[in-house]
Design a binder for these strands. Structure first.
Lengths: 96, 96
DNA sequence: TCGATAATTAGACGCTTGTACAATTGCACG
DNA sequence: CGTGCAATTGTACAAGCGTCTAATTATCGA
């Protein structure tokens, strides 16, 4: 994982509302956009904006079904982010 | 780890320069402030500001020795952050 | 094709934040 | 004390970001 995506992921995780969206997506196999709009007290446009950020970070992937948008977690990217955290901060056993 | 600290940590990690500082601290046992000021092309005030953010997030802890400030990583908080990521995003085995 | 519904995009606004410069504090050493 | 260095804090500003409303695109049903 390169520096640029690492930063995108870190920033994507840093906003509480956006993280809640991600959390909700992670809780289901696949989540329709509409469900999130119904759940959170922000506008549809804001939800869409956050979903775009999460998608740009690679954390989720969209699927279009007719007029409905569905989102799904991409666990691999999260794992890669965690691995990069470990690597760059040397969390993997200080004794080496 | 509560929501507030989780967000503080996430935000602290999200700025590239600040993460570099943390990375440098994580690489040593203990790092003097002066070393960072010499290393990065930003002002002393900016370094100090970032260190304060990292400290507020609990990621590092300061030690004062005379006029010199030293900083040390707090691995436990990072571990807690990672654990919270796992917990909230259900990365720990989808089969449960 | 027309209207309704779902979602994205565009533009704007206010708050946050990364940064710099200047002032201040804290400490060491004459 | 007073001078000088290390570090923090105050103030200010430009850029970034979360949010909204409005406009636009895309799709379904009649």
């Amino acid at each position: 994982m390169d520096q640029e995506q690492f930063t995108r992921v870190a920033k994507a995780l840093a906003d509480p509302r956006r993280f809640e969206l991600l959390e909700m997506i992670a809780g289901c196999d696949e989540l329709p956009c509409k469900r999130m709009v119904e759940t959170f007290p922000v506008s549809q446009a804001t939800i869409s904006h956050h979903l775009k950020e999460l998608t740009n970070a690679g954390l989720i992937e969209p699927r279009r079904e007719g007029q409905h948008g569905h989102y799904r977690l991409r666990p691999g990217v999260l794992e890669a982010y965690r691995a990069e955290l470990d690597r760059r901060l040397k969390l993997t056993a200080p004794v080496g």
